[in-house]
Simulated scan of single mutants.
Amino acid sequence: MKSLIQSLSLHHGYLAGFLSCAGLLGAAYYFEYVLFLEPCPLCMLQRLATLFVGIGFLAAFFSRPRQGNPASWGLKLALLFTLASALLGVWAADHQLWLQSLPKEEVPACGPSFDYMLETLPLTELLKVMLHGDGNCAEITWTFLGKSMPWWTLLCFLGYASAATFALVKVSVKRAH
């Protein structure tokens, strides 16, 4: 077991990050299409951030340096993109948790479904709603171990941000030596 762990590299971590993002997106679609839980605007923003994190990890996977070569700028850019996407996810999940913690009288009004907004609103208005959220974002429709979905996605995004930061530091230190 120890030799297996020692044989793992950042390269394997990039692939694991990509696969975990694919799993999270699969779970999101399961919640939507099998359990019929309608995603709110902040949920959709978290999905987008998850997609971007996955793309960043996949780009890092394919940009890895070959044996003995220093890290490329492409790898560093992929990791920076991954970090920025994870931080967007942290913000969106935290904002949704804040909305869920508001007293009922302070929760913003509920808006139309995301599909309806996607079809009718201009992109700038849709982005504004996605960033601010609405009353639908304050509803808690699913929990696991007493925690709502944005709490769990916040943990995932914090993990992704930590992994991207660790990888950035590690590939930068390798280059310095």
Score class of each variant (00 low, 15 high):
residue 30 Y to A: 09
residue 31 F to K: 04
residue 32 E to W: 08
residue 32 E to V: 02
residue 33 Y to W: 11
residue 34 V to I: 15
residue 34 V to D: 13
residue 34 V to F: 15
residue 36 F to D: 10
residue 37 L to H: 14
residue 38 E to Y: 10
residue 39 P to D: 09
residue 39 P to S: 14
residue 41 P to D: 03
residue 42 L to C: 06
residue 43 C to Y: 02
residue 43 C to Q: 01
residue 44 M to T: 11
residue 44 M to D: 09
residue 44 M to C: 10
residue 45 L to V: 04
residue 46 Q to S: 08
residue 46 Q to H: 10
residue 51 L to A: 14
residue 54 G to F: 05
residue 57 F to Y: 07
residue 57 F to T: 00
residue 58 L to S: 11
residue 58 L to C: 12
residue 60 A to D: 01
residue 60 A to N: 02
residue 61 F to D: 00
residue 61 F to E: 07
residue 62 F to L: 12
residue 63 S to V: 08
residue 63 S to F: 00
residue 63 S to N: 15
residue 64 R to M: 01
residue 64 R to I: 00
residue 64 R to V: 01
residue 65 P to H: 13
residue 65 P to R: 14
residue 66 R to S: 11
residue 67 Q to I: 10
residue 67 Q to R: 05
residue 67 Q to C: 04
residue 69 N to M: 12
residue 71 A to H: 05
residue 71 A to F: 00
residue 72 S to T: 03
residue 73 W to G: 15
residue 73 W to A: 12
residue 74 G to R: 14
residue 74 G to V: 04
residue 78 A to D: 00
residue 79 L to Q: 12
residue 80 L to W: 15
residue 82 T to C: 15
residue 82 T to H: 11
residue 84 A to W: 03
residue 84 A to L: 12
residue 85 S to P: 05
residue 87 L to T: 01
residue 87 L to S: 05
residue 88 L to H: 09
residue 88 L to Q: 13
residue 88 L to Y: 12
residue 91 W to Y: 13
residue 93 A to C: 06
residue 93 A to M: 01
residue 96 Q to E: 01
residue 100 Q to A: 06
residue 100 Q to S: 06
residue 101 S to Y: 09
residue 102 L to M: 05
residue 102 L to Y: 01
residue 102 L to W: 01
residue 102 L to I: 04
residue 103 P to C: 06
residue 105 E to L: 05
residue 106 E to P: 06
residue 106 E to Q: 15
residue 106 E to M: 07
residue 107 V to K: 11
residue 107 V to D: 03
residue 107 V to C: 00
residue 108 P to R: 14
residue 109 A to C: 07
residue 109 A to Y: 11
residue 111 G to H: 08
residue 112 P to V: 10
residue 113 S to G: 01
residue 115 D to G: 12
residue 115 D to S: 12
residue 116 Y to M: 11
residue 116 Y to V: 04
residue 117 M to W: 03
residue 117 M to C: 13
residue 117 M to V: 03
residue 119 E to D: 03
residue 120 T to I: 04
